[in-house]
Write a protein that binds this DNA or RNA. Structure first.
Lengths: 161, 161
DNA sequence: CATATATGTCAACATGGCTGACGTAAACCT
DNA sequence: AGGTTTACGTCAGCCATGTTGACATATATG
């Protein structure tokens, strides 16, 4: 922020606006996927696991736990259901045989793609109407909300596709 | 978006980046408030009710239901707890005596302020580092994620303080 | 006066978090 | 080689917060 920028810039109203838009924006983004998940008997927790496994194939269980920030017992339930329904498979780690590497089965990949498309449509529309500069600001502000220490974990998702 | 903007602009990587930042940004924004709420034996649902009642004092129950998009049975539990603990009070509507107008008690207002400050610190930092143009883009993209039909409801929160 | 609306309430259930305790296999360290 | 730590899994129970369905009451409205 340039020195001397309006002090009103950080007034309560602006903060509340951000809080509200973030809440409603997130809620609306996932609304479509929620419907599809419910039809299949899955929930948001399943989606999150599917999403990150799709994003980083062969991620070990521990990394997924770090990303989701839940207990292994919670993840275990979700992962067990996804495996039982043929969406996720495990292989023993090559470098460290204690690790279980997670990846999607073809059926899992198909479902993840379908769910991604639910989110994508809304995001594409929002990006398109806002323009590239706005999108860049959107990314910048959201990144600023993440504690610096946690950023590498998230940036690693976006590195080298 | 200007005609002829990069077609790469809407590639999958950009969409996924937005999805991830929105998820992690939201999660981190509310993390501090979650801690405080847990100390008091409240949860996020209580916070959402407190938040919107603070934002629009004397909002009728039905409006709050529309905003939160949950069933009246779910809200009723939360609201009952907030009333039992002296955070929220109801008055009979003046224009329509069937309505119950919600407002915070002084204790409720104190708590809401405290929780707001938990969110505010993170948002203020993110806004400050990003700059006003980025914040504007942040708002624009998030607004674009909300179905146009729902926007008036949310904009009404931000009108005429 | 009949009907619709705003709210409340009882009961049962699902999802997805949590804690605590315990077990196994593999890696790592000395 | 042996003890310790790490990665993962599992059993059991609890809590928060959402859901549906049915029904009750007071008030507004045509």
């Amino acid at each position: 922020m340039p020195v001397g920028a309006s002090p009103l810039f950080l007034r309560e109203a602006e903060i509340r606006r951000g809080i509200e838009l973030l809440y409603f924006g997130y809620t609306n983004m996932v609304k479509g996927a929620d419907v599809r998940l419910a039809e299949l008997g899955f929930g948001r927790a399943h989606h999150r696991a599917l999403y990150f496994i799709a994003r980083r194939p062969d991620m070990p269980v521990g990394d997924l736990l770090d990303l989701l920030n839940i207990t292994k017992q919670s993840l275990s339930r979700v992962l067990g259901e996804l495996q039982a329904r043929g969406m996720v498979a495990q292989t023993v780690g090559t470098r460290d045989r204690r690790q279980r590497m997670l990846r999607l089965t073809p059926a899992g990949a198909t479902l993840e793609t379908e769910l991604f498309e639910c989110l994508r449509d809304g995001v594409t529309r929002a990006y398109g109407h806002a323009g590239q500069a706005a999108v860049s600001g959107f990314w910048t502000v959201l990144t600023g909300l993440i504690p610096p220490g946690d950023r590498p974990l998230i940036e690693a998702l976006q590195a080298a596709e």
